[in-house]
Design a protein around this nucleic acid. Structure first.
Lengths: 331, 331
DNA sequence: TTGTCCATGACAAGCCATTGACAACAATGG
DNA sequence: CCATTGTTGTCAATGGCTTGTCATGGACAA
């Protein structure tokens, strides 16, 4: 075919024309990207639209364009389909129905994996990717949710369960340390990205996050920092494995108002306890102490007189709100 | 002909503006350099401009001259294109929209001002930020360079030196461990973001990155992983502190072609040596072994028979190119 | 002269949309 | 229990548009 349309394409400039089409209700994903993001094949996407009107992406002259809402819906649909429902029936339902359906289905199946199932995370694909050490695939699987879920849910219902599951499997001997490392590195990168994304520019540092010496698990703490940042609070994330003395000494110059400690080791080592005691004793009076994580309960007796123990994410978010955080809401 | 010479285009500017002596916003790059900096072919650059007006570099008598902002925009475009978006649609979007597309991608301001002097890092500002534990400010300072420099230079000329400096200061007692922790956490988040940003979606060639048991410094290795990803190679980053046996065992299921080991401890512990020996002995034959980092030289005798020691970043990049990496270095 | 830039034009791949078909499977009725 | 019918994912053929890359010829500067 000679003549390819090449040449023309509107005379080049058009820079003054109707350019700022930005608002657009944010229909920004072409079918290819949607397919990657949802894990649904391109053909299937088209079939679902043609036959059942499952979603109705906008069309511009180049093809379909999906919105965030479409993606979210497609994800729900896929989840339900994988639970055995038929797309023909599902297509007519509203998003809320779908969500409900997903929730009850979980209650129903009562399968052993209930914890990670909630939003139809594709655990199979995830495990497969993990087995093959395919970090990119893992990232993609998880990013699907990142595009749609608010930070809290992303952390609580996706990231942490995934990590916990890998941890369990490792204990059972089903996976290797290397898998666990790969998974935490990947999650840490994701969380780090979000922390940077949300970090508000001109806020005086208000919360400082760290983990005591000997404590190497940082994902939970990093996640907490990310949540705080997404609430518009100033965050300084110091990372794991930091001596108590160092932590205490940094509060003043950092101008921190709160110290958030991640305690995940459940076994109470002597060192841990001494460290914690140092914190409680030396932490400047005007600084609040919050302790969270799996191991926080255990040290409640030590922490409570001085600060508070965060028992779950709701408690954490309540505290964030109290000191001025505004909660991010759902799309 | 078209407009052949065009002539000098408002001759005022380019020399050295008599007006504001401030770090001009000019900083112009010819097309060849831009191609190297962004990894986009020259023809493609021209096509993107001609057909879609993706960027509109100024012309002087030498030809197109791109600004820092152009470069940063082109990088964003390239990223989105690689993730499945089509350039025809992307071209009309603003930089902010592009950034948003990556779901998490880049995070930073870099609005119009990205330039500043690209030569010297503002160490004063950086140290000040560090003293105040202001992670966001550190991130911003560094991100200015991230917008403009290609990955290699960013890593070699900015990130690693900064980290080294903090390390030195700590040895001299000028800063605390906490500072060092904050800095490495921040850098690690930046690197992690870039790793995710660059990670090519569907790639077979796979490099696996890790650090031996006892070795906790991961920044260099993470940086190396980021470089490989930015060259279009598949990357699995396992993180630091992993037993040799674990590393060896993961090569097969990962389908890895190369194992990149980060050796930073210069003191030769017995454990380290034994670990390394295990690697050399048990690593599958078809897997290459590359060792890099400050401590690599020291173990050259052990490594050389089996693999190669990466003495500097150029060597590293050469190897990346050999196994299929595309990209460029220095102008 | 040589090397770099420019503007055009030209293509081959590849992508997307549409339509129709087909195999695998489930549900239904006899 | 089997045959029929409906559902659903996937594939193929066709046509148009998109996009990376190559080739050509001209203009300069070193």
């Amino acid at each position: 075919m000679g003549h390819g349309g090449v040449g023309r394409v509107r005379g080049g400039r058009e820079g003054c024309g109707p350019v700022s089409k930005t608002p657009e209700t944010s229909a920004r994903y072409p079918i290819r990207v949607v397919s990657k993001l949802t894990g649904i094949g391109i053909d299937t996407l088209r079939a679902w639209e043609r036959r059942y009107g499952a979603v109705t992406p906008v069309r511009d002259d180049r093809g379909r364009m999906y919105t965030d809402a479409d993606i979210s819906r497609l994800r729900l649909l896929r989840g339900a389909v994988e639970h055995g429902h038929s797309i023909g029936r599902l297509a007519g339902l509203t998003d809320t129905d779908l969500r409900r359906l997903g929730a009850t289905a979980d209650a129903n199946t009562a399968s052993a994996v209930a914890s990670t199932q909630r939003t139809s995370l594709d655990t199979a694909a995830l495990t497969a990717a993990l087995q093959k050490y395919d970090a990119t695939a893992i990232d993609q699987q998880i990013s699907r949710f990142a595009a749609v879920l608010p930070p809290l849910e992303l952390l609580r219902d996706v990231l942490m369960p995934v990590l916990a599951q890998v941890g369990d499997e490792w204990h059972r001997g089903a996976t290797r340390i290397a898998h666990e490392h790969l998974m935490s590195s990947t999650l840490r990168n994701i969380l780090g990205s979000f922390l940077r994304l949300y970090a508000p520019p001109d806020v005086s540092t208000r919360l400082l996050f760290a983990t005591l010496a000997g404590e190497r698990h940082e994902i939970g703490t990093l996640g907490a920092a990310m949540l705080a940042a997404s609430s518009g609070l100033g965050v300084a994330y110091l990372g794991p494995d930091l001596p108590a003395g160092e932590i205490v000494e940094s509060m003043e110059p950092a101008g921190a108002r709160v110290l958030v400690l991640g305690l995940t080791t459940t076994s109470a080592g002597k060192t841990r306890e001494r460290e914690l005691r140092t914190i409680v004793r030396d932490l400047p009076k005007h600084v609040e102490l919050w302790a969270g994580g799996r191991g926080a309960e255990r040290h409640a007796a030590l922490v409570s007189p001085r600060g508070l123990v965060l028992r779950d994410y709701s408690a954490y978010q309540r505290e964030l709100a109290r000191i001025g955080g505004r909660v991010a809401s759902h799309p």
